[in-house]
Amino acid sequence: MNFAPRYLGRGSWLARRDPRVLVIAVVCFVLAAIQVWDLRIMLILDLIAFAYYRTARIPFRQVRRQWMLAILFVSLLVFANGIIASGRIQRLPEGVEPHIYGYIPLLGTPVSAESLTFALVQFLRFLSLIAVGFPIAFAIAPDVFGVTFARLGVPYRFAYAIDLTWRFIPSLAEDFRSTIDAQRVRGMDFTGQSRNPVARVRRQIPVLVPTIVNAIAGAEDTIDAMDLRGFGTGERTWFQDLVLDRTDKLVLIGFGSLLVVATIGGLVTSSSVLWVPDAILPR
C-alpha cells in the first residue's frame, strides 16, 4: 500500500506552471463542461482535456489502476441513471420525441437514439473531468499546496491545513498498516465474508479504533510543535513565491475563454441541448 501523493509529473511542462493555473483550469473546465450537451462539442472538450493531461507526462503504467476504476465507476453511474430515468431524457431539443429502438426486457425501459446519446455525453464528460483533474494530484509539487490555495484566497490557516493533510498521509498510512499487522498476529482474518453489513462494519473496529485514536493522541506533539513556532499568531508569509509567467497567463486565458464561450454558447446556440447524430436514428 502506498498512498504517498506521488509527484509523477515532476519536471513536465504542466508541473512547471504556476500551480494556481492547474486549480483554476480545472474549475473553469468543470463549469464549462457541465453546460455542454452537444456531443460534437463534448468530443472537442475531451480532446482539449486529454491534450492538457498529456502535458503532465504522467507515466500511464503508474496510474493504470486509477483509470480502470474511474472508467468502471463512470460506466456504472451512467448506466444506472439511464435505467432508472426509464426513458425520460433531459436536454432534449423542444418538440423532439425520442426515437425508440426497443425496450429492455423485464424493466421495460425504452432505449432510444436520444437516451444513448445522452449516456454517451455523460460518459465523455466524466472522462474529460477526470483527465483535467488528474494533474492536481500528480503535477503539483507536494510542498506548494498550501501556498497555492492561500494565494487563491483561502484563509491561510486552512490553506496550511491542506499542506498538513498531504504531510500526514504517508505516516498515517504506515501506522494503519502496522495496526493491520498487529491485529493479524492476533489471528484476525481479513478475508472472511459475511452477508450481514452490520457484522461486517463491526469487524472493522479492531483496525479502525486504534488507527484513529492513535492518530488523534499523537497529534498533541504536532500541535505543540506548531504553537512553539508561532503558528496562527499573526500575519504569515509563504517562502515559495508564485509568479504567473506569460505561458501561465495564456493557459488561464484559454481556459477562461472556454468557460465564457460555453456559457454564452449555451444561451445563444444549441450547445446545451442534446444533439443526436442522424446516422444512429432508426429508419
Binding site: 486552512f158 491545513a161 493533510t165 498531504w166 500526514f168 498515517l172 494503519f176 497529534a219 500541535i223 496562527g232
Partner: peptide, 19 residues
C-alpha cells in the same frame, strides 16, 4: 481556529482520504 483545529482537521482529512 487554532493549531489544534488545524491539526485535527488535517488528520481527519488525511485518514478519511486514505481509508
Amino acid at each position: 481556529v487554532d493549531s489544534r483545529t488545524i491539526v485535527y482537521a488535517a488528520i481527519g482529512a488525511a485518514l478519511y482520504g486514505v481509508l
